[in-house]
Amino acid sequence: MKKIMSLLAASTLTLSLAVASEQFSMSDADRALYQEMLENNPADIFVEEGSELFDEYVTEEALAKFLGVDVDNLPQVIATFPRYIPQVDEVLGLDQVLQAVMHLNGHKPFKLKSAEMFEMLAYAKSLANDEPIAIDIHANKKMEEAYKLGEQLFMTKRGKRGLSCNSCHSKEVVGLILRTQPLPDLGYVNAGGTWPAYRMTKSSLRTLQRRFQGCMKNALLAVLPIGSKEMVALEVYVTNLAKEQKKSIAIPGLKR
């Protein structure tokens, strides 16, 4: 009897997985709004503003020069970010390179977490739209280290609930429901290629590292600052997941 009940208990466990997944995170009205926004992404305005800032403070010529490439090759190079930057001997995000170029152009760089930087980053990254994501985690030792650090941070449980990114984004839980939210496969949803994106629930333009901060805050992991070696490393890791899925850059994204 005990054995039968235990078997029964075991099978209810598996059954419950199938039953509960019938929930949806979006109402039909939300879905309609999402469709509408797909055709008319509110983030387009922000990208447009970013383009004005970019032309005033950065320019394609100066960015290409800093990266040591022809202007014509900018899209392919932008598709390799985060990448190793020899001038500082570090792996940097594109936003940090924009700071460097602003400085070299004689301007005070925007703060990484400023709305101006989010907009300018969105525009700069959109120059690479439709380019396949081309991050190269084997480019050199620093890139390899950044990837390893990113992977390690992704897997490490910490914070007040002892969770890691992997607790909610591992292959084992993808598609399962966390309080009405299906857990996304970060490679498959192309997180690396679709941020900066417009977030409908926040009514604003957000960057990938800003999105990481959102997950950290929600799950009670101490929030890491944008631009830290660790955040860039996480971006390297997550961007590589999108590359493995053969995704291309598509800025600005549109997110729930």
Partner: peptide, 24 residues
């Protein structure tokens, strides 16, 4: 100098202390 100069204008905040305190 150039590189030090750039390093001082690019934001690269240190997160290691935050992580250390947050250890499980």
């Amino acid at each position: 100098v150039h590189s030090a100069d750039l390093k001082s204008v690019i934001e690269m905040p240190d997160a290691s202390k935050i992580l250390k305190k947050d250890r499980l």
